[in-house]
Nucleic acid binder design. Sequence first.
DNA 1: CCACTTCGGATACCTTCACTATCCGAAAGT
DNA 2: ACTTTCGGATAGTGAAGGTATCCGAAGTGG
Lengths: 209, 209
Amino acid sequence: MAQRAGVPLSAVKYYQREGLLPAGARSAPNQVAYGEEHVRRVRLVRALLETGGLSVAATKDVIAALDAEAAPLARTFQVAQHAMGARRVQESAPSGAARARVEALAAARGWCVTSDNPGFEAAARALDGLRSIGFDPPQEYLDAYAAAAGTAAAADLQALSGRGERDAVAELMVVGTVLGDPLFAGLRRLAQQDATRDAFPAPARGGRR
Amino acid sequence: MAQRAGVPLSAVKYYQREGLLPAGARSAPNQVAYGEEHVRRVRLVRALLETGGLSVAATKDVIAALDAEAAPLARTFQVAQHAMGARRVQESAPSGAARARVEALAAARGWCVTSDNPGFEAAARALDGLRSIGFDPPQEYLDAYAAAAGTAAAADLQALSGRGERDAVAELMVVGTVLGDPLFAGLRRLAQQDATRDAFPAPARGGRR
DNA sequence: CCACTTCGGATACCTTCACTATCCGAAAGT
DNA sequence: ACTTTCGGATAGTGAAGGTATCCGAAGTGG
């Protein structure tokens, strides 16, 4: 099973220990049968850990939310969002001013959000970081980012429609939430290089001229 | 100085050891004078480490590129982008198919990029993660993300214009590159909650009904 | 002038995280 | 009966990001 998922056996054992993977069906007292769903689950865990950058503990919460069949899908979404916020511990709380600015931005766009949304903290911390080097982002800057976020979120939800099964929807919801960030990050780097080419002279190759 | 920057003294010493902070001006054989620029630098380092999620080694590269006055700004941008790709070691290379899809996406949008842009790897890995759970992103999905990335990148470059000094521009470029990701991530979570509210029934508060 | 504090620098140590290696007992195959 | 293989448990590993301690030189008060 570990081979089928492309993961070292020791890592699979570790995930089971940590509660990230359910025990397989006992076929014999010392044999466990794993089906395709287990392989799929291992790959999901790896995607969240490796590409998504989540911690094992955060991944555990997400998995638990996925398996809570009774919970509404919106609740699963919430857990996935909170798990992403907790990728690192010991993060200082953002300033009130930064948070207020993010709240104003959300209100201006008519977003209906709750104040416990971890996006507030994340965005406010980023604003604090920009402020700390003396950059107070102009409104156009924030508006552009908010518009981009809206575009991506709409695409995320669009992708969910038309997928009938509850499990498939929940899984995609979680993975999309987590992997959307690195996807955007990569594409932004590409777009930045293109934009930089227009704004600055190309660096001279092989020395200065 | 550590107090002024809001960082434990031991951490500042550690950063100096690791080459993230330059030595201060010696005012006496056992006294070192720190100016406002040092405090600023400490805050920059903290923003990259804590909010940006960079490793100490990656931050060191970025700092070095910032201080290389002779280097063209485009080069500084490159280093910042590469540093972000290296936030975690031991990441497996993405599949060729995923990378090809990202390349096609960039070509379709007319982006002029080099193949060593770390954004390719990052985006392709995210696509692999989505594929691994059986989600093959439709073209509209990728187009939406690419459009969002273009919007953000344009705002990033816009913010750079009108800032005369080379140092200020380079610093903002670096911090904007690094902190743009968490800023977007936070805003996307807010937008997602809003979009989810439209697509799914609100979760019942206080129990099931 | 001499104890006493303070500062900077160097070294050793600590904690967490994500694994990895080893050991053991039971069961299946030969 | 004997070897192999499997699952589970326990202990160990290495990197990362700090923290704590020690030491010697410089300034300070009596």
